[in-house]
Amino acid sequence: MTSEAMIDADETLARFTRTLRTYDDPHVARVAAALADSTPLSIETPALEPEAWLSVLETTAGELYLAASDDEYGTRTRWYVRHDGAAFIYGTKQIGELYRGPEGTNAYRQVRSVVTNHDVTPYPMGNYPLEVADEYQEVPADQ
C-alpha cells in the first residue's frame, strides 16, 4: 500500500474500532479489543462462538459485516454476512446478496453456517463489497 492509502486504512480502522467501543455488549467489546490490536494488513479477530457472532451482527446492524473465505479444489469462495437491523443477509462474491431473513430462514441458516465453519473477519459497512440487493430469496429453511 502507498503511504497515503495506508494512512487512510489506519484511520478507517481506528474509526471502526471507536464506533464498536460505543456499544454496551460484551461480544462487540471483544471484537473492538481485537481490532484495537490490528493493522489494516492484519485484522485480528476474537475466537467467538457462532451464537456470539450472530449476536454481534444483530447488535451492530448497519455498522459491520463479516467476511470469510475458503479455497477448495482450486476455487476460492468468499462469503459476506451481515444484519440490516431487521434480518440476516447472506451473499457470495460470485453471486452477490442472495438470502435475507430472520431465524428459521435460509438466510439465517447460511449466515450461521459461515460463522460456524469458517474464520470470519469483521469490516466496517463502508467497505462492503457487494451491491445491496433489492430482492432476496426468503424461503424458510424448513421448506
Rank of each mutant, 00 (worst) to 15 (best):
Q137A: 05
L130M: 06
H27Q: 11
E49V: 03
Y80K: 01
G101K: 03
A32W: 15
E72F: 13
V139H: 11
A14H: 11
G126W: 08
Y123Q: 08
I43H: 09
A133I: 09
A141D: 14
E103T: 14
Y73W: 14
V115K: 05
H27T: 06
A14I: 07
A5D: 14
D119W: 11
T39S: 14
R112G: 01
T17K: 11
P129I: 08
T105L: 08
A14S: 12
E103I: 15
F16S: 04
Q137I: 15
A14N: 09
S42V: 07
L41R: 09
N106K: 14
I43F: 06
Y90G: 00
T121N: 02
Y65G: 00
A107T: 03
R109L: 10
L130Q: 03
H27S: 12
L13S: 08
Y65F: 15
E131H: 06
Q110I: 00
E103P: 06
L54Y: 05
I89S: 01
P129S: 01
G126D: 12
R109I: 04
D71M: 10
R21N: 13
D119C: 09
L20A: 08
T77E: 13
L57A: 01
Q137K: 10
Y90W: 10
G104I: 01
S38N: 04
R112W: 10
T2N: 13
R30W: 07
D134G: 14
A5C: 02
E72G: 03
P122E: 12
T19F: 11
A61L: 03
Y136W: 14
T39D: 09
S38L: 10
T60I: 07
L35W: 12
L98P: 00
N127G: 02
W53D: 02
R15M: 06
T77W: 13
A141R: 06
R109Y: 13
V132G: 00
D37R: 15
R18T: 07
R78F: 06
Y65D: 00
Y136M: 02
T39K: 07
V31K: 04
G62M: 06
L66E: 02
E63G: 00
G104K: 03
A141C: 04
L13P: 01
D25V: 06
T77Q: 09
L64K: 03
Y65L: 00
T12L: 15
E11T: 11
R30S: 12
S55A: 14
W53Q: 02
L48K: 08
A61P: 09
E49K: 06
V56Q: 09
L20N: 05
T77G: 02
V31S: 00
R82V: 07
R76T: 15
V139E: 12
T75F: 15
R112I: 02
E135A: 13
E4S: 14
N127I: 06
Y65P: 00
E72C: 07
D70K: 04
N117E: 15
E11Q: 13
